[in-house]
Design a protein around this nucleic acid. Structure first.
Lengths: 248, 248
DNA sequence: ATGGCGATTATGTATATACATATTGAAACG
DNA sequence: CGTTTCAATATGTATATACATAATCGCCAT
């Protein structure tokens, strides 16, 4: 087997062999070609098919198992798991991490960017008492080719002036802000909502389909910094949080 | 190097070598011993330290990189990444409190009560490894005359035997349990869902209407105690959570 | 039939080895 | 003094091999 990396035709990306095997199988599963419960080929069959060593196949399958897409059973083989609404954790608010934890390539794309003086609604969302310049952003987070979440964000430019110069074309404002503004407090609101036409269009789902909405307001030293609303299609997302009882 | 699996003293768990290396390094990072930006030992150093092959070390480090904890740079080494996550402290209140906070009279009404041996689904929900007696309850929480939330609950009777004698006709099982069983850990899953016919009927909403679903699993001293699913009509409910940042 | 037991099989982990590739630091050169 | 070149180095990927482990199947004896 050649050690040279292989050019994956479809995506045009350069993939190592085990990544290509992983990607091929993931595609079969996500597309539905291999339904939950389906037994995927044995390691030795994939070894033959890709003409590579078992270690290489094993690496791909192990990763799929760790990502929760397949279940491996000794002596029986590997099986496609029931879709377990893959975990996003309340602790992880970087969507990139959530997506990459699923083993999918992450991408952010800006839909809209608007600088304006805050109106009544902006002030309510941010918790501002007086008007000032704000930046309104809208963007899509992708997991592979599928939209993963829609983001609607307001940034208080009085608190983060540098944001006015940033285009946010394909870098998400969340990580950008975290690197610049130390936040001291945040408040979350979580609710369900039916997709309206605009949301349905952006997320490529039906109008009226249920969505999970997570809104966050962030302060830094008593000053409102940003308000963000993440909208997830219901099937794609479950928040998970673990607790131990607080003492006292 | 022995092929025998190694007994990790602290957790008492059986870990393979690459899992132990991974776990050791993750511990250093999460505990703060190795701060963001810190260069972790080179592969060949870890190879010496654990007296194993580079492939084994590489497997651990690759996984840490994929999980986003470290960043690997050729020729330079591997470095601890900036923390991209914040820990969550989310308080979920008793439904009675929520309703009364709205200034509405609260009432609970049992819909169904069934004692049975746990089936596969019951065991999955509770996290039980073997079958045993469970109590399945379904009930409605009212705010005034309107249904406020539907509750579907499983109680592990092996852990809470007294629950078998309780009718739960108009007292909700949640508060009853809290008074009797000190819980040590809980896990929440939060998602959006479209109402099916049964839910729509109970909550007096349309089929397909979006709902917020909150599932909670509770343990007491390692023993699963109860699994409960609250289903709220989307309009009636918003979860609110406040956070302060925590390092790591 | 049936309950136990060994053989078979697929996965799990680890090794030694090989070569590729990106990046750095230093030497060589104009 | 700046630039180019090159060797050294750490990681990235793949191989062939070995043995461990768990689950299943079929055989055999009770």
């Amino acid at each position: 087997m050649s050690l040279v990396e292989i050019d994956d035709i479809e995506g045009g990306e350069i993939l190592s062999l085990h990544q290509r095997i992983l990607s091929d199988i993931r595609e079969k599963i996500l597309s539905g070609a291999w339904a939950p419960g389906h037994r995927i080929p044995f390691e030795h069959e994939l070894t033959d098919h890709y003409n590579c060593s078992r270690m290489t196949v094993n690496k791909a399958l192990s990763q799929l198992a760790k990502a929760g897409l397949i279940e491996r059973r000794r002596r029986s083989g590997s099986f496609v798991r029931q879709p377990q609404s893959q975990a996003a954790v309340l602790e992880l608010h970087d969507i990139r991490i959530e997506v990459e934890a699923l083993g999918l390539p992450y991408r952010y794309k800006r839909l809209e960017r608007l600088k304006r003086r805050s109106g009544t609604e902006d002030r309510a969302l941010l918790g501002l008492s007086q008007s000032g310049p704000v930046l309104a952003l809208e963007g899509l987070h992708f997991a592979g080719e599928r939209p993963f979440a829609l983001e609607q964000r307001l940034i208080n430019l009085s608190a983060v002036a540098e944001a006015a110069e940033e285009e946010f074309l394909d870098i998400a404002p969340g990580p950008w802000l975290i690197g610049r503004v130390p936040w001291s407090e945040a408040e979350h609101r979580i609710r369900a909502m039916a997709a309206d036409e605009m949301i349905a269009d952006a997320l490529d789902i039906d109008v009226g389909a249920p969505c999970l909405v997570v809104e966050r307001r962030t302060w830094s030293a008593e000053h409102p910094v940003t308000h963000v609303r993440f909208i997830y299609p219901a099937e794609s997302h479950t928040l998970v949080a673990r607790f131990t009882p607080s003492q006292g």
